[in-house]
Computed example of a mutant assay.
Amino acid sequence: IRLEERFLPTVDVVHGFEVDNSEELDAFFIDEHHILDLSEIIREGAIMATPMKPLCSGECRGFEY
């Protein structure tokens, strides 16, 4: 799985102030303890990488109705 995402802090590392990220709709956030939880990103990436119609081989045409 290849992922390309943006991660933004919720707290300024140097000063400890909360960072306003209210305009960032498509970014993931690093929590107030400076921990990055990758579980949701990996789950979404794995779902998107899974073929909708898995086949047993490259030559297989799948089920035909």
Rank of each mutant, 00 (worst) to 15 (best):
I1V: 14
I1K: 11
I1W: 10
E4T: 08
E4M: 09
E5L: 13
E5Y: 09
R6I: 15
R6F: 10
R6T: 15
R6M: 14
F7N: 04
F7R: 04
F7M: 12
L8K: 07
L8S: 07
P9G: 09
P9F: 14
T10E: 15
T10H: 05
V11T: 13
D12S: 07
V13N: 09
V13Q: 11
V13W: 13
V13T: 06
V13L: 15
V14N: 09
V14L: 14
H15E: 15
H15F: 14
G16S: 12
G16R: 08
G16P: 01
G16Y: 02
F17R: 10
E18L: 10
V19P: 01
V19I: 15
D20E: 05
N21C: 10
N21I: 08
S22H: 02
E23K: 06
D26P: 00
F28Q: 04
F29T: 04
I30T: 04
I30G: 03
I30E: 07
E32C: 06
H33K: 11
H33F: 02
H33P: 01
H33C: 07
I35F: 10
L36D: 02
L36R: 01
L36S: 03
L36G: 02
D37R: 04
D37G: 02
D37Q: 04
L38V: 02
S39N: 08
E40C: 03
I41H: 02
R43M: 13
R43C: 08
A46G: 05
I47P: 00
P51N: 12
M52Y: 05
K53M: 15
K53G: 06
K53S: 15
K53D: 15
P54I: 10
P54L: 13
P54Y: 09
L55A: 11
L55T: 08
L55D: 08
L55P: 00
C56H: 10
C56N: 11
S57P: 00
G58M: 12
G58C: 07
G58R: 10
G58A: 12
E59P: 00
E59N: 12
E59T: 06
E59L: 09
C60F: 01
R61D: 15
G62P: 00
F63D: 12
F63Y: 11
F63E: 14
E64Y: 10
E64M: 12
Y65D: 14
